[in-house]
Amino acid sequence: MVVGVALVVVPVYLVVLVGYGASPRTTDVGYAPEQPVPYSHALHVGQLGLDCRYCHNTVEVAAKAAIPPTQTCMNCHARVRATSPKLISVRESYATGMPIPWVRVHDLPDYVYFDHSAHVRRGVGCVSCHGRVDTMEVVRQVEPLSMGWCLDCHRNPEPHLRPPELVTSMDWVPPEKPEVYGRRLREQLGVRPSTDCWTCHR
Score class of each variant (00 low, 15 high):
residue 188 Q to R: 09
residue 179 E to T: 11
residue 131 G to I: 01
residue 193 P to R: 08
residue 168 T to Y: 02
residue 63 A to I: 02
residue 191 V to E: 01
residue 56 H to P: 05
residue 155 R to F: 05
residue 118 A to Q: 04
residue 153 C to R: 10
residue 48 L to V: 15
residue 67 I to W: 02
residue 173 V to D: 04
residue 114 F to P: 00
residue 200 C to K: 08
residue 102 W to V: 15
residue 174 P to R: 11
residue 13 Y to K: 05
residue 13 Y to T: 11
residue 180 V to Q: 04
residue 58 T to R: 00
residue 34 E to V: 15
residue 78 A to H: 13
residue 5 V to Q: 03
residue 96 T to Y: 04
residue 39 Y to S: 07
residue 64 K to D: 06
residue 114 F to G: 00
residue 60 E to V: 04
residue 98 M to T: 10
residue 135 T to S: 12
residue 88 I to F: 14
residue 201 H to M: 11
residue 52 C to L: 03
residue 50 L to T: 15
residue 168 T to L: 00
residue 106 H to W: 03
residue 68 P to L: 04
residue 59 V to K: 01
residue 11 P to A: 05
residue 80 V to N: 13
residue 24 P to D: 06
residue 109 P to C: 06
residue 111 Y to L: 13
residue 137 E to K: 09
residue 176 E to L: 07
residue 66 A to L: 07
residue 10 V to M: 02
residue 133 V to T: 03
residue 102 W to F: 15
residue 193 P to T: 13
residue 109 P to I: 13
residue 123 G to H: 05
residue 200 C to S: 10
residue 93 S to E: 10
residue 156 N to Q: 09
residue 31 Y to S: 13
residue 174 P to N: 12
residue 32 A to M: 14
residue 62 A to F: 04
residue 104 R to D: 06
residue 54 Y to L: 10
residue 166 L to A: 12
residue 87 L to N: 02
residue 26 T to Y: 13
residue 124 V to N: 00
residue 6 A to W: 08
residue 164 P to I: 12
residue 196 D to S: 09
residue 25 R to V: 03
residue 20 Y to T: 14
residue 47 Q to C: 04
residue 92 E to L: 15
residue 36 P to Q: 08
residue 9 V to R: 05
residue 91 R to T: 14
residue 176 E to C: 10
residue 84 S to F: 11
residue 195 T to Y: 09
residue 163 P to K: 09
residue 171 D to I: 14
residue 122 R to T: 08
residue 119 H to L: 11
residue 108 L to R: 08
residue 174 P to L: 11
residue 51 D to V: 12
residue 89 S to V: 14
residue 121 R to F: 03
residue 111 Y to F: 13
residue 154 H to T: 10
residue 160 H to I: 07
residue 61 V to L: 01
residue 35 Q to I: 15
residue 170 M to L: 06
residue 199 T to K: 07
residue 157 P to H: 01
residue 92 E to G: 09
residue 89 S to W: 12
residue 87 L to K: 06
residue 136 M to W: 11
residue 92 E to A: 14
residue 114 F to T: 01
residue 126 C to I: 04
residue 72 T to N: 13
residue 135 T to N: 07
residue 1 M to N: 06
residue 31 Y to R: 15
residue 178 P to D: 08
residue 116 H to I: 03
residue 90 V to P: 07
residue 68 P to Q: 02
residue 109 P to N: 07
